[in-house]
Design a protein around this nucleic acid. Sequence first.
DNA 1: GTCGATTTCAAACTGCTGCTTCAAACACCT
DNA 2: AGGTGTTTGAAGCAGCAGTTTGAAATCGAC
Lengths: 248, 248
Amino acid sequence: MTPKPDRTSDRTPDLAATRQRLLDAAGEVFAEVGYRAATIREICTRAEANVAAVNYHFRDKDGLYQEVVAYAHGCAMASHPPPGDLARMTPAEQLQGFVRSFLARLLDSGRPAWHGRLMARELVEPTAALDRIVRDSIRAQSEMLMGIVRAVAGVALPLATVRRAAMSVVGQCLFYEHARPVIGRLFPDLGFTRSEVEALADHISAFSLAGIASLVGVAALTRPAERKGKSVAATKRSPSHSKRRSRS
Amino acid sequence: MTPKPDRTSDRTPDLAATRQRLLDAAGEVFAEVGYRAATIREICTRAEANVAAVNYHFRDKDGLYQEVVAYAHGCAMASHPPPGDLARMTPAEQLQGFVRSFLARLLDSGRPAWHGRLMARELVEPTAALDRIVRDSIRAQSEMLMGIVRAVAGVALPLATVRRAAMSVVGQCLFYEHARPVIGRLFPDLGFTRSEVEALADHISAFSLAGIASLVGVAALTRPAERKGKSVAATKRSPSHSKRRSRS
DNA sequence: GTCGATTTCAAACTGCTGCTTCAAACACCT
DNA sequence: AGGTGTTTGAAGCAGCAGTTTGAAATCGAC
């Protein structure tokens, strides 16, 4: 009744854990067609497993999905972690580092190539998994980015302005994943090779740097530009994701 | 067997066209839960119509969806059309006008309040409807925006740079619709009142104006900044949507 | 080898959903 | 009124998909 929680490979290496095969296959299918349209039968066919395997290893379809999301996000964060030693970098470098890792997590086609699409779907059509992601990861990254924006600005900005600037940055990044179907139709020649992704990151960094700088000018005109120490804070990080399942 | 294609209201006004009620209800449901998860029964319940009504008026679920998308997009474009007389405006005004109308179309909660979410879903999970939208509307808007970017820049920029700048602009706009679930969780106090939307449009315009200007500087450093007349072109517009149905 | 636990398998069950059917109701025209 | 074409209604059908079940197979340990 209670399957061992994590077992990566203890059988013969060629028959490596059906559980893992299910995770990979499920990630593919969920990313391709979405949660509702994905069928357990299709997933099990790709994983070369029996239909009952999903219910055995993950209780039900929802449990499988939760695990897939956690797994994909974990891989992506491990593969492209956000910059860690902000204190040692200039604000511009901090921004560039943030954008680079964020964009790479979205568009890097290595590892689970489907991570980006899965997250894009999760943002637009949230499930119970989104709450956990926001709590464990997104919130901290939001704080970090807003800290970077403040550092780039140098002077104190109204909270609403900082938020908008941060959203402008992530909005530019997310667009390339969200609107991928449209981009493919508008510019069929545009591919997302690794070098192209780096060029995009550079573009977004430069674009945003100038954008934030312009906000400082506006703020200076609007209010008497009260001074406040350099806010390069935002150190809180997520304590890794727990393995609890909540839904009945 | 062949229902009259369009009939807005010719019966008694209180029993106004079940067809229209179906369109409204379907828009709501499709926007809320997506195409797959939406059930004809739920739509008909909200529209106070019989299940068979959908098949009678729209042939099948897919036909209904196509009509809903066309209807919503038509309403939004009519309600917040993109700026028309670009030649009379400064580049900055052109950009501001574009962003204002684009953002209003996405976030305005009047009219079909569900238009934004419906489009957001359509972008991430494209159906046959997306091809028509790209052909009839998005492509022209893309051209228009790239023209505006060129006008703002003033000098000639590489095509790839213009594209990226344009995508930075629409990315910032789309974010507020796409990531609405996350935004709601991160900043629960943030609402999208009409004045808030205008403030957002101003922010995005200013931010992008500075961003584009910075690209000019980079381009000037990179290549000898060849000159080229003001390109405020991009006049092609969509010829309204046809009423054909294609899928068998 | 044998026992016990874990994992896999084929088949069936159950609920839901899109769609059809055919009859009744309605509106419009002569 | 009567006829005709259009719209609505209730019931049901066919298929799909998530889940269950009980037995077979596999594995580790003694």
